[in-house]
Every structure is written in C-alpha cells, then in structure tokens.
Design a binder for these strands. Structure first.
Length: 418
RNA sequence: GCGGAUGUAGCUCAGGUGGUUAGAGCACCGGAUUGUGGAUCCGGGGGUCGGGGGUUCAAGUCCCCUCAUCCGCCCCA
C-alpha cells in the first residue's frame, strides 16, 4: 500500500498548483529560447546507460532500477535524461537535419536510492539539450536559461558554479598528475576516496570528508592543465556569461556525477537550502556522448534540474507561484427535478470558458451551498424552484453575500463578464 | 550500502508499571433548517493498532524478526 517510488509530495493541493505552474513557465521560457519539446521513453535498454553514464558512476553501479522484460532484454528506468535524448537523436537521424537542434523536456527520472528530503526514487527533471553547437556561447546560453528561469521564479541566493573538466585530449595527462599526487597522500585519505583513486580519481576532488578536503586543497586541478582548445573554450564561456551579466564563480573542484562530460561543467546552487540538496540544477557539455552510442560525432550541451528541489527552494524563500485553483461558479438546484437542468447549465458554462463545479450528489440546498462556499467558488447559481418557473436562475455572489434572480437567457452572459 | 528516529481513523496525535466493546481534535456524512453561507448544537460512519512470530489467563503496550517512511551519511537533481 506504500509508494514503491516515493516522489516527495506531501501537500497535493498546494503542490499541484505549483507543479503545474513551474512546468508551464519552464516550457514557455525554453520555447522563448528556441527549444522544442521532446518526449522520450521512461525505459531504455540497460546498456545505453552503462555505456554513457559510466560503469563506475554511482548512478549506474548501484542506483538503477533494472529488470528483464518477457523477451529477456535488460531494461532500466531512466536515471537521467541526456542519454535518452541522444539515443532518440541517433535512432531518428535527427543529427543530420541541420544545425541548432535544441530540445527541452520535463520528465520523471528514477534512482534506487534511500529516499530523504530533496532526494526521491522518482523525481522529475526539467532539462534541455543543444546539439551540433561547439561555440562557447551555446554553453553560456544553456547556463543562462537555467539561471534565468530560477530568477524569473523569484528565487534569490543563487550561485552559478562553473568548471572545465577538459577533454579526452588533455584529461588523461591531468589524471596521471592527480593520481600521482593522491598516491603521495594515500594514507591520509578517507576509505571511500582511497577506493576512488583507482576507479574515478576526479571524484576525490568533491569529497565532503574533512580529511580529504585538506589533501584536496593542495591538489592539482584540471583548469590548470587544459590544452589550448579547452582553455579557449573555457575563456569563451566566461566571456559570454560576462556579456549576459550572469554572475558566476569558478569552482575548480566541481565534478559531475556522470562520466560523459567534457569541457564545461556547471551547477546552480540555492543557498537557502542545506547540504547536497542546494544543487537545484546542473549540467555541462558532453561532446562525446552521441558518438559513444553509435551516432556521428556530435557536440552537445545541456542541463537537468529537479522540480522537487525547486519547490523546496521556493518554500525556503516563502515564494508562492500559484494559489490552489477553485472554480468560478457552481450550479446548484433547489429540487431533484431541476438537477439535470442544472447539470446542463454547468456544461454550457464550461463550454463558454467559465470554470464550473456541479454537485453530483443530491442534497439539500443548504448542504450544497456549504460545500460551494468551502470550495472557494465565487458564484453559486441555483436552478429550479419558484424562480425556475418564472424562467429565472438565482445567482448568488458568495463573496459579497448578495443575490439576484436573473433571466435564464442572460445567465451565461453575466457569468462570462464577471 | 551505513547510522538514528518513527509506524494507532482520511489528517495530526493521545493511549503511566500489560487488564472490558481502542480514544480526541480536525475532516467527512446526517439532523436542527419541507428553499439559502464559513458559526453553533446534537447525532453518525469509519481502525488488519505497518506485517509476522513469541511470552502471558490477557498484548496497541513486553521480546524477536521483518517491512515502510522520515532524518543524516554516501551520492545525486
């Protein structure tokens, strides 16, 4: 009887209005920047994520919901969005269809972790991806869309962190230098980090363990070992962000949880939240991913942002995006004989664009009114009775506590105007 | 995967040292009101006490196991 995949919802009425509003504003904002909506499957072959996110990444190695279908194929619920979009791009030959391929999505992601505040087994990400653009301004635009979106929601205390994680051309050399440094201090590292030195040494850089941080503080960083191409790209991103007036900090120890990133990596934190859930959005460039899954070499950059965390951020700053909706009118009836007439009137109101409630259950007018008042409706229309025989409908303004009998043929007009 | 806390009505919770048919507030339903408002009063429906096992004449209460959720860690959005 419990949720298998808790989503972090606690107050459906408040949350649902906020939820819808965030998705609506995100779609609008993304489309304003030339992105088109893309919908990809919730399940993919397990191999897709293994190849792209990296065997050694935590997400793939221990956080995927993996199962076999009836035909014996290994499938996984998607833990992140980029791999699916890239797969769709390759499968449908979209990469060949010109420049400026820009997609956005709002989609549930699944990770088999221990649920807690701001971290759920099913969460929904707002995301987008740009393909075939190598220019640093594309990276900057992606960051600008994410940051600008948060700002337009009214969020403050935001910090944009950026870094470059290099490319396959320069990262291996840096990696050797880093590993050599870490080995010198092996004994002082935490057990987790000792293990990471072999598996994924760059992860040691963002360890929160105080023992590690002391060592990490003196460690060589990628941005000091970038090759010329990566260096220029990183400078270009910084310049473009500057031109847009987006404040950022360079965090040389920023590392992302997925292995496919190249060059730019970034996160946006909301500092009114605590700990790891401060990160309300993150992304970067992944020029090698499309080729890795069998497509043509294709540049790509994108981000993902968890709606649940965005809502937590909004709550932490007491920002309300939307009030719970309530209908504008409710059509009630004095007697059972007028019920279907009332039902039909409610339908006509809805057709003319008036949000309307109708009580299905037959109850006394007193109870119908009580329910209407409680639901927050502005107008109550009461059909039937003496007024009905005279060709009128009682229209009550529940806010101003006034009422009048209105000829039936004027009711629609009157409600539309109010 | 590790650590801590918590599971009793739809919700929030109460149920000293075991002891009748397990309670309250809110919510819901009905009535007072044969046709009119958020209040009030009266009444009502609702429970595998997370699940399983054990101890006992007797378990919501004690013991063991298990599951789930919440919080923290790891990691992530």
């Amino acid at each position: 009887m419990d949720d298998v995949l808790p989503t972090g919802f606690s107050n459906p009425v408040y949350d649902s209005a906020t939820w819808v509003e965030i998705k609506r504003r995100y779609a609008q904002w993304a489309e304003l920047h030339g992105y088109r909506y893309i919908e990809t499957p919730v399940v993919e072959s397990t191999g897709l994520f293994r190849r792209t996110a990296g065997e050694t990444s935590d997400i793939v190695s221990k956080e995927m919901y993996t199962f076999e279908d009836a035909g014996g194929r290994s499938l996984s619920l998607r833990p992140e969005g980029s791999a699916s979009v890239c797969r769709a791009l390759v499968q449908h030959g979209l990469a060949a269809s010109g420049t400026g391929l820009k997609f956005y999505y709002t989609a549930p992601m699944f990770r088999a972790e221990r649920p807690q505040r701001g971290r759920y087994r099913q969460h929904t990400q707002l995301g987008l991806e740009v393909f075939k653009e190598t220019d640093p301004s594309a990276d900057a635009e992606v960051i600008a869309v994410l940051y600008g979106f948060f700002r337009r929601l009214g969020l403050g205390q935001l910090t944009v962190h950026i870094n470059s994680v290099g490319s396959p051309a320069c990262r291996p050399a840096y990696r050797d230098i880093l590993v050599a440094y870490l080995r010198e201090h092996m004994g002082q590292l935490s057990e987790d980090s000792q293990r990471r030195v072999d598996v994924n040494p760059m992860r040691v850089l963002d360890s929160k363990d105080p023992r590690d941080q002391e060592i990490v503080a003196g460690a060589p960083v990628m941005i000091d070992h970038l090759d010329e191409e990566c260096r220029e790209h990183f400078d270009g991103v910084k310049a473009a962000l500057g031109a847009l007036g987006i404040p950022f900090v360079i965090n040389p120890r920023l590392v992302r949880g997925l292995d496919y990133y190249t060059k730019t990596a970034f996160e946006v934190t909301c500092d009114s939240l605590d700990g790891a859930i401060k990160v309300i959005g993150g992304g970067g460039r992944y020029d090698g991913l499309v080729e890795q899954i069998g497509g043509p070499s294709t540049a790509a950059v994108g981000f993902g942002s968890g709606i649940e965390r965005v809502i937590l951020a909004l709550e932490s700053q007491n920002i309300r995006l939307a009030k719970p909706r309530s209908a504008h009118a409710a059509v009630l009836y004095f007697d059972e004989g007028a019920k279907l007439e009332a039902f039909a009137l409610a339908a006509r109101l809805r057709e003319t664009g008036v949000e309307t409630d109708f009580p299905y259950r037959s109850r006394g007018v007193s109870k119908q009114l009580q329910a209407a008042v409680k639901s927050g409706v502005r107008f109550a229309l009461i059909v039937g009775g003496e007024e009905g025989e005279r060709g009128e409908v009682v229209v009550k303004d529940l806010l101003n506590r006034t009422q009048e009998a209105v000829p039936k043929d004027r009711v629609l007009e009157m409600l539309q105007q109010s």
